[in-house]
């Protein structure tokens, strides 16, 4: 009648949290802030997010990623613009998504199931980092990258909204 219990237990595996913390700590180290402030800020964000998700239930739980994003943002703004920090910044964000997928309130294996989505994000990071390595840096390149990113997202959002409203006959919120 019923199948065997899922070997992966509920409660979220500590592996994703450990991986997330480790990558953020390394990113904090390479940022180069004095007195190991980088890893401290990064890990503080990770711990705050973990505690938030552990304590909150319902809609408040959704906001658990916020402290980690703030910490990553602080580190990113202080980081030198070299390929290593850029790669580690992208990896930190991917690790954040992996940790977010491994939610203890949901059936186990969220990280495994989210591989497709995280791979899509990883592909975007990989393309961007490859461009950094291959295209010489110029003044104004960051403005161009920001504008391109914004334009691309707007186009994708418009396409998705159109598809959702066509599929259901009603306007979707995406």
């Amino acid at each position: 009648m019923s199948g065997p219990a899922d070997p992966a237990r509920f409660g979220g595996s500590g592996l994703t949290l450990a991986a997330f913390g480790a990558i953020v700590a390394v990113f904090g180290l390479v940022v180069g802030l004095p007195y190991l402030l980088g890893p401290v800020v990064g890990l503080a964000g990770v711990v705050a997010s973990w505690a938030w998700r552990r304590r909150r239930a319902g809609a408040g739980r959704e906001l658990g990623v916020l402290p980690a994003i703030v910490a990553l943002g602080v580190l990113a703004l202080a980081a030198p613009a070299v390929p290593a920090t850029e790669l580690l910044g992208g990896l930190s964000a991917l690790a954040l998504l992996l940790w977010a997928a491994d939610d203890p309130a949901r059936p186990a294996g969220g990280g495994r199931r989210a591989v497709g989505e995280i791979a899509t994000c990883g592909l975007a990071v990989a393309v961007a980092w490859t461009l950094v390595l291959t295209v010489p840096r110029r003044t104004g390149a960051i403005d161009l990258a920001g504008a391109l990113l914004a334009a691309l997202l707007l186009i994708v959002a418009w396409l998705l909204t159109r598809e959702a409203s066509r599929g259901t006959g009603a306007g979707a919120s995406a």
Binding site: A76, G90, A93, G122, V125, A128, I142, L149
Partner: peptide, 17 residues
């Protein structure tokens, strides 16, 4: 600060993905 772009990229792409 271009590093922030690399953090923003997956965060922005994830909802669409």
């Amino acid at each position: 600060a271009p590093v922030a772009l690399f953090i923003a990229l997956p965060i922005l792409v994830a909802p669409f993905a």
